[in-house]
Nucleic acid binder design. Structure first.
Length: 107
RNA sequence: CGAGCGGGCUACGCGGUCGCGGCGUACCUCUGAGUACGAUGAGGAAAGUCCGGGCAUCGCAGGGCAGGACGCCUGAUAACGUCAGGUGAAGGCGACUUUAAGGACAGUGCAACAGAAAUAAACCGCCGCGCUUUUGCGCGGUAAGGAUGGAAAGGCGAGGUAAGAGCUCACCGACGGGACGGUAACGCCCCGUGCCAUGUAAACCCCGUCCGAUGCAAGUUUGGGCUUCGUUCACAUAGGGCUGCCCGUCCGAACGGAGCCGUGAAUAACGCUUGAGCUUAUCGGUGACGGUAAGCCUAGAUAAAUGACCGCGCUCGACAGAACCCGGCUUACAGGCUUGUCUCGGAUC
RNA sequence: CGAGGCGUAGCGCAGUUUGGUAGCGCGCUUGGUUCGGGACCAAGAGGUCGUGGGUUCAAAUCCCGUCGCCUCGA
């Protein structure tokens, strides 16, 4: 399935204001119920140079994409935490944990 | 064999599954977009933004001052602060490397401390004369020696002298003139001048050359109509425009606020990738580079696309991600491959 | 994309224009004063001048490169 992206600044700041937060070891999510599932990844300058930032975005995006099946539709922000090392396995594990805890799966 | 020097190339590869950007074709359609297939999709530095240009706009912008950049010569180039070939200088046994390398009789400034003296001369010395004659004092000559300093009046040897001194001579250096070679920087040879005068222009400056400003968030198109108010100006003055200023020149209109309806508004499209383009061959040139022919089309996103997992191989993979586009410079970088009538040392024939 | 500024002792700043000695305040150490502490007085320590080159006899200062931080404009 295709994951829609969350683009507009208004929408993002809206989610940040009114959304619900949940934290894990490697990532924080902020979400708000919506008509369709739309996601955005936030990686600022503090994470390093562009190659490093791109790497984080790709890992996180991929982890979200492969685990977003059967989710309740919502607008969601994915915010990684600053760390020495980033791996796909850790992002995937933490995202699954968060989705379960917040009961975002429909079934 | 060892140690070097110079140049060039490359930047993990292959296969499978899932996924992303734009493109083409086909299909469906609720006109929002979607589905399938196909080919395609980051770099040598994409980086830093240090230079140069294209392109765009500012009413095509002429002159002067100010300001900035550059600075051996010749060439290459669209242009350059870049590159190539040379000259001089410095370093290295050498291959070779480095070089902001115009001007200090146009002027101004600075040279701390030390030292007698820093652009001007005599502290200790040395020598002569006079006095005294144990020491020494005075006058004069001198710049060889000592001491200070980054720098002390060309260097070194010989002659010469009371002691000395380019005072004289040879060699080297400097300056001036001439011949020859070279497009030139300059080289080399000959002759002359005993050489009245330091360093610093990455101090101000002088000379020569060049520079209009702003930058793709440039800019173009679409999206709007009505009412009302205000400011400046149309003889001159004044006002306005692309830079700090002045002169010249151009303009007849330009700008701003409020309300109503309408409204996607850091929005959509264009700019946006065919270009001083790339590859191969060949010709000219020492070379940078240029000419000709054939072939090729090779990212174009806009919160921003290259990833994840599995398998195999090896040397176990560095620095690092296009954002208008080119030419350079600078900086970062695991390694691997390759090359030379190249250099030095050792051994052997 | 473009423009500008800063980096000096543990902290906050002078010194850079015009090159020769790095200084001020707070803090620190030692001594004095006090019954003791504070305040005060006296003495002292402490700086690769962000970093790598260059110019110069000599560089915190002049020039070039580079690193980090901050601010501003579109």
């Amino acid at each position: 399935m295709r994951v829609l992206r969350l683009k507009k600044k208004k929408e993002i700041s809206g989610v940040l204001k009114t959304g619900r937060r949940a934290h894990a070891e490697s990532v924080t999510i902020v979400y708000f119920p919506a008509k369709e599932t739309r996601a955005a990844v936030c990686v600022g300058k503090k994470f390093g140079k562009s190659v490093r930032r791109n790497r984080i975005k790709r890992l996180l995006r991929e982890a979200f994409r492969t685990n977003a099946h059967g989710m309740k539709p919502c607008a969601i922000l994915l915010i990684p935490k600053v760390a020495e090392e980033y791996s796909y396995a850790r992002f995937e594990r933490d995202l699954r944990k968060l989705f379960k805890r917040e009961k975002l799966f429909e079934s």
